[in-house]
């Protein structure tokens, strides 16, 4: 955990420096007659962040903070596997939105999670995976008039058919 905490502080420090550098694209000082420049607020706040990361890293090196006193790994093998399976699933879900639409990706993700990770019966997994996107479709598209991504053109006939139910 100690090494992890120092690395995290390091990443945040790099991020702070990047944000400070990015802020300098606008003025970071007081401009007479105009007030503080547009970059001032994020620049100085990122500066405070940088100072905080140094203190956090020093505390971790000196083993003052609770995580740096722990010898547990940040993620053990089982935890790593679970996070990979779950986060990987969500990642693929989002990646599929542009191809098979938000509703199609939702259906596939729910089925993956319920059937493969949750070990639920095929009947229940299929029922929830189909009913949920259907309910979402009618709530968002018909009731709230919010359009969610429809994916590539091959999904069009299907959504056209669903739209005939709404309109």
């Amino acid at each position: 955990m100690r090494r992890g905490e120092i690395i995290t502080a390091g990443i945040l420090a790099v991020m702070s420096i990047y944000m400070m550098w990015k802020s300098t694209e606008l003025d970071i000082f007081y401009i007479k007659g105009e007030g503080p420049g547009g970059g001032a607020w994020p620049f100085w706040l990122s500066g405070i962040m940088l100072i905080c990361t140094v203190i956090i890293a020093v505390n971790a090196v000196r083993r003052v903070s609770p995580p740096s006193q722990s010898d547990e790994p940040v993620l053990d093998a089982e935890g790593r596997k679970m996070i990979l399976q779950v986060f990987g699933g969500i990642f693929v879900f989002v990646a599929l939105v542009g191809i098979v639409s938000m509703y199609g990706a939702m259906l596939l993700f729910l089925f993956y999670y319920l059937w493969f990770l949750g070990r639920h019966s095929l009947k229940l997994s299929l029922a929830i995976s189909i009913l949920t996107p259907t309910a979402f479709f009618f709530f968002f598209e018909a009731l709230m008039r919010v359009t969610l991504p429809k994916g590539m053109s091959f999904t069009e006939p299907f959504f056209n058919w669903l739209n005939t139910i709404i309109y």
């Binding site: 969500i90 939105v97 729910l110 319920l114 949750g118 639920h120 979402f136 968002f140």
Partner: peptide, 18 residues
């Protein structure tokens, strides 16, 4: 939990988009 968790993920993704 194995039903609730994917539902929360789905709601999060849709909420983030909406």
């Amino acid at each position: 939990f194995t039903i609730l968790a994917p539902m929360i993920f789905v709601l999060s993704i849709v909420g983030g988009y909406a």
